[in-house]
Design a binder for these strands. Structure first.
Ligand SMILES: [Mn+2]
Ligand SMILES: [Mn+2]
Ligand SMILES: [Zn+2]
Ligand SMILES: [Zn+2]
Lengths: 130, 130
DNA sequence: GCAATATTTATACTAAATCTAAATATAAAC
DNA sequence: GTTTATATTTAGATTTAGTATAAATATTGC
């Protein structure tokens, strides 16, 4: 039962992630810190993001882009990425348990979890550019 | 209808991907080329992998690990990764279309495709380690 | 064969993230 | 409340995966 140690830096970074709903990257977190007039060492931001992830306060998302994104929503959910504008939205409809069971049968694996990245065009992009 | 130009290098790399069933990374491709006594420039391997991917002869997989993996199987399918030994196996059971439809309704996106990475422990690892 | 085009090569460079060791800050012991 | 121990931050070097560049080589069209 390790107590969570929220330093000034970690708290500031956690706040940004919790106030952001667009799954920011580490670079975007640094940018938003700077907008607030704060500036921490490069490594501190990465260390803090890892710490907060390890403590279960945030989640790291690897969606196949170059950089990881971070999410204050820690409950199991999936993501959808717009092919046009790059935005990342939540997918709260659960992956069907029956599919995971079928995959377990097919592969012989004991399944822990599944991550889905859906790709498409968001409503906004569809409306604007024909 | 662009003709595919398979140079010596591209052919050798394609052969390795087609003969491998473990979804090798670029580094592993280089390693296997060396085992065959062949050695191409670093950049040539990356260029060739990109070319073969663009031509649709192979697929690039971004499974959330640091490095991309490559797959000679180009039909739509998913992957499962062993948490213990790191092996990557095929998942041929399709993601349910009903789930994708539910996601489209939920998000308002026009969905192009979905990639799932399932994580678990493979049969072999389960048998060996307790 | 000779010019035009494409590919390979070696090398430099980039982006994301980690590692290192010194400097600070925080907590525990006297 | 000073001293000692532990944890964290910092700046900078390092790593890893991959891309960009420009010269050298190979291939194709005439
Ligand atoms: Mn999310
Ligand atoms: Mn595959
Ligand atoms: Zn969009
Ligand atoms: Zn395994």
């Amino acid at each position: 039962m390790n107590k969570i140690n929220l330093t000034t830096q970690r708290k500031a970074i956690l706040d940004i992630i919790q106030q952001s709903h667009d799954h920011p990257t580490a670079a975007e977190v640094i940018e938003r810190l700077r907008e607030q007039g704060r500036q921490f060492a490069y490594g501190t931001v990465y260390n803090s993001l890892r710490y907060l992830t390890d403590m279960g306060l945030i989640r790291e998302l690897k969606l196949g882009e170059a950089a990881s994104r971070y999410d204050a929503r820690t409950d199991e959910h999936q993501h959808i990425v717009c092919r046009r504008c790059g935005r990342v939205d939540e997918v709260l409809t659960d992956i069907p348990a029956a599919w995971l069971e079928a995959v377990a049968r097919e592969t012989g694996y004991a399944i822990d979890r599944a991550q889905a990245v859906v790709e498409g065009v968001c409503a906004e992009c569809r409306n604007s550019g024909k």
